[in-house]
Simulated assay, not measured.
Amino acid sequence: MAAEQTSKTIEAYPMKGGDGVHSYANNSSYQGRVNNAANRLITEAVVEILDIENFASSNTFRIADLGCSVGPNTFFAVQNIIEALQFKHQRQGLHSQLPEFQVFFNDHILNDFNTLFSSLPPNREYYAAGVPGSFHSRLFPNASLHFVFSSFSIHWLSKVPKPVVDKSSPAWNKGRIHYPNSNDEVVKAYQAQYTEDMECFLHARAKEVVCGGLVALIIPGRPNGMHHSQSLTTDVLESCLMDMARKGIISEEKVDSFNIPMYFMSPQELEAAVDRNGNFRIERIITELGTVPETQSQKIPSDFRAVFEGVIMEHFGYEILDELFDSFGKKFEVEFITKPMSGSSSVFFALLKRKATN
């Protein structure tokens, strides 16, 4: 049967590929540390919540990492899941029934899969496959996945909300590149796009995940009750772009039409989305899994480039990248000294379990 089709328009801006100085592979240590902090939670989820007896008839256990990007983080996460499964089988006396493992590494079609697969662990205990495409739509056959993992991915929207680039809209985001510190109409436009995208994400996963299967999410967001203006902002990057516009390097109109397709949800917003979907039960939400540590502030400019270079290059071209991020690094250093970022970014962990069908 052909895969379920979707008419949803998807914009793809993957992380910086390769293994160079500006690559995501070499500038994602913070994400890696947060993933490591979540390893215990994922192990507990497998040992305490996953009902492996329900999957005994299948000799293959299928795991998917949605938004895997490049670099070692995805491999460490997958290995942790497999080791937890092996431990659970051994503890329950089912070692002889240990299944084979198949792991699907998913990201946008423009992701650097060559670098990803050239760095696969040579002694891995699983069969690996790449699955290109957006996780905002269907990627896998019905009831084919047992464990879904996604880290630092679902805060990316499928596209920039249309109203924020429409000059006739009250949500036109002139002079800004994101929604923190913008007017309420801009925030509402981003919220509406997030709501639509999460509906698509959960609908697709409900089709793909077996009953009793788990979905583990590591989500950059904001605590319940925190105002959007306190979310991680891109003011410094915005200021650097406006400086370049004033110098005539890029046009101000080009800056006005640029917005970052990213939304920082709260745990309450995730809970509401899961309730609306109705196919999952939230097993756990752990808040404050990670924050931006002050001792790592010097790494933030290079991390920003690895994450945002793709979306900036697509809009402005590659010619401005070096000058832009050189300026960003200098401005950020001054900003951080006068106004530290502590508390401006929060990461939480959510574990969902696929309900049984009626």
Rank of each mutant, 00 (worst) to 15 (best):
L66Q: 10
T233K: 01
N181G: 04
F113H: 06
L145G: 05
H95G: 02
M15I: 03
D19C: 00
P301R: 07
D243W: 04
F201N: 00
F201G: 01
H178R: 01
F140C: 09
S144K: 03
F76D: 13
F325H: 15
L98E: 11
P132T: 05
K162A: 15
S153F: 05
A216D: 04
P293V: 11
S23N: 06
R305L: 12
L237V: 12
Q191D: 02
C211R: 11
P132L: 03
D166H: 05
Y318C: 15
A84P: 04
F55R: 08
E238N: 02
V209I: 12
S137M: 15
Y263T: 02
D166P: 06
K162Y: 13
L145V: 06
A56N: 12
N39W: 14
E314K: 15
P267N: 04
N224M: 09
E4D: 14
T233H: 00
D112F: 03
N358L: 11
E288H: 15
N59W: 12
P122V: 10
K162R: 11
G310H: 04
K331S: 06
E309V: 14
E11D: 15
Y318K: 15
L66W: 07
T60M: 03
F117H: 03
S144R: 01
E319R: 14
G221A: 06
R176M: 07
D322E: 13
I109F: 15
F328I: 02
A12L: 02
A56I: 13
Q296G: 07
F135H: 03
E185Q: 01
F61H: 13
G20S: 06
K254P: 05
N173V: 08
E252I: 13
M262D: 07
F258S: 10
P261L: 09
Y13Q: 03
S150G: 11
V160E: 08
L98R: 13
G18Q: 00
F336K: 13
G71M: 00
V187Q: 00
N80A: 11
T291F: 05
M341L: 08
P121G: 01
N26L: 11
K299Q: 14
K88F: 01
A12S: 14
N39V: 14
A272W: 04
H178P: 09
C200P: 05
W156H: 10
P14H: 02
F55M: 05
Q298R: 10
L289P: 06
S229R: 03
G310F: 00
F135M: 09
F316N: 01
N279W: 06
N277I: 05
F201S: 11
D197Q: 00
P293Q: 07
M1L: 13
K330L: 09
L110F: 07
T195W: 04
N35Q: 08
D243P: 00
T115R: 00
P161Q: 12
E83F: 07
F336D: 14
K331M: 03
Q97G: 03
N106K: 09
R33D: 15
T291C: 06
R281K: 13
A192W: 02
I300Y: 11
T291D: 11
E208G: 08
L217Q: 09
V292S: 08
Y127S: 01
F105S: 01
T43G: 07
F304T: 09
N358T: 13
N277W: 04
P220H: 04
K207L: 14
A204F: 12
P180D: 00
R284Y: 05
F149Q: 04
E48C: 06
T6H: 14
T234H: 01
L157M: 01
